[in-house]
């Protein structure tokens, strides 16, 4: 069986393994989750700020059998493979921010626990024309106690509803910020992420005291 571990023909044989005490210490990784329904602009968001073009990894997700219409079936769980896009921003050589874009439109019972462990917070990207797509993500982050911010993606600068209406529709707590941003622009994504980081800082301060 021919297995090609380097499917894109990258030459990895020349990679150097540094030896001795001068080996680079790895950066401390921190991560922010970018969640939301299909096609709301998660990958665009990640790509706008990432210093690398977004990479994709595949992960196995356990999906809860919802609407179990076959009671005869022994197991109501199925697994499915989902693609996850991610990017990164090097803050300095000792600190690196990762952004993981995760699908959240279906009720994945998830490996989200793995994903969320150690995360600073989440940006839930919302398209106001399909607002219910983000409900599972909001539900999950509320239960997990992860700081999150709702980011309404203004496609072409258009905001279908005002932010109060979005808050009403989502029924999130008053302390959950709702911001509007444009996923295509780095500055706009940066500002939305800074709101997430403010929330994370609040949480870290509370944990310390």
């Amino acid at each position: 069986m021919d297995f090609d571990p380097y499917p894109d023909n990258r030459v990895v044989g020349t990679a150097r393994v540094p030896s001795g005490p001068q080996r680079t210490a790895p950066p401390v990784p921190v991560k922010i989750i970018v969640a939301g329904g299909f096609g709301v602009g998660k990958t665009t968001t990640v790509g706008a700020i990432s210093e690398i073009s977004p990479l994709t990894t595949e992960a196995e997700m356990t999906m809860e059998g919802v609407g179990v219409d076959d009671p005869g079936q022994a197991s109501s769980k199925t697994t499915t493979t989902i693609a996850m896009d991610f990017g990164c921003v090097t803050i300095d050589h000792t600190l690196k921010l990762y952004l993981f874009g995760t699908p959240g439109q279906t009720r994945f019972a998830f490996m989200w626990d793995d994903l969320v462990r150690g995360a600073l917070g989440a940006l839930v990207v919302v398209d106001t024309t399909r607002i219910d797509d983000c409900y599972p993500a909001v539900d999950y982050f509320e239960r997990a106690g992860l700081p999150f911010v709702v980011g309404v993606n203004t496609f072409n600068g258009q905001l279908g509803y005002n932010l109060d209406e979005v808050r009403w529709a989502l029924a999130v707590r008053d302390d959950v910020p709702i911001v509007q941003f444009d996923a295509r622009f780095r500055g706009s994504v940066r500002d939305a992420l800074l709101v997430v980081l403010d929330q994370a800082l609040d949480k870290a301060m509370k944990m310390r005291s």
């Binding site: 921190v30 300095d92 600190l95 462990r117 150690g118 980081l197 800082l201 870290a204 310390r208």
Partner: peptide, 21 residues
Amino acid sequence: LENDFPDPETIMRVIRGLRSI
């Protein structure tokens, strides 16, 4: 990593780093 959640100093550094973008 030792800590489950980053400490405030680390978060402040991320904030400063992002602001400079």
